[in-house]
């Protein structure tokens, strides 16, 4: 059975390395600031205790006030998983650091989020629209797109 790590417990362990990073942490998820996302992700991947070597899923949710980018991380070795989130309050030019250099699996998923949600992933090697054509007006998965 894949153990879902509790956000609070992981947050405690991260807190001494990245005191400023964590916005909140609850039962299901741990929410970090976009600026520290890359460092936290690298820490989670590199620390043997966590060893999150597999990025299961990457997506974004538009809560109108902010965008939430959701990372589902899994460790194939320890068989546990964690939900990592980050929030982006800018609606005009939301930007989140890319994690492609950590997990190549983020490549197409970040392009998809960029395409449909309009969140820029800084540091992505090939950030182009995935499904829609260049010049498509707007980003369809935003809640205010009609």
């Amino acid at each position: 059975m894949t153990v879902t790590l509790k956000g609070e417990e992981v947050a405690k362990k991260i807190a001494h390395s990245f005191p400023m990073a964590i916005i909140t942490a609850n039962q299901t998820a741990i929410i970090v600031t976009p600026d520290s996302l890359y460092q936290v992700a690298r820490f989670l991947k590199a620390t043997p205790e966590f060893d999150f070597d597999y990025l299961t899923n990457l997506t974004a949710v538009d809560y109108l006030d902010y965008f939430e980018v959701v990372y589902h991380l899994t460790s194939l070795k320890h068989n546990h998983s964690l939900v990592l989130k980050t929030r982006c309050y800018d609606r005009e030019k939301p930007s989140v650091p890319s994690v492609v250099s950590l997990w190549q699996g983020a490549d197409l998923q970040e392009r998809e989020v960029y395409d449909l949600m309009g969140i820029t992933f800084s540091g992505h090697p090939n950030l182009k629209r995935l499904f829609l054509w260049e010049g498509f007006p707007g980003h369809p998965l935003r809640r205010d797109y009609l």
Binding site: T56, N57, T59, D62, H72, Q104, G105, L108, Q109, E112
Partner: peptide, 27 residues
């Protein structure tokens, strides 16, 4: 995988599919 977000309405607030075929194309 299906990532669903509910806002207590009759329709999902966010309905995300984790498509295996797309991610297998990454490499």
């Amino acid at each position: 995988g299906f990532y669903l977000v509910s806002d207590n309405s009759i329709a999902p607030y966010r309905f995300h599919i984790r498509p295996p075929a797309l991610l297998n194309l990454t490499a």
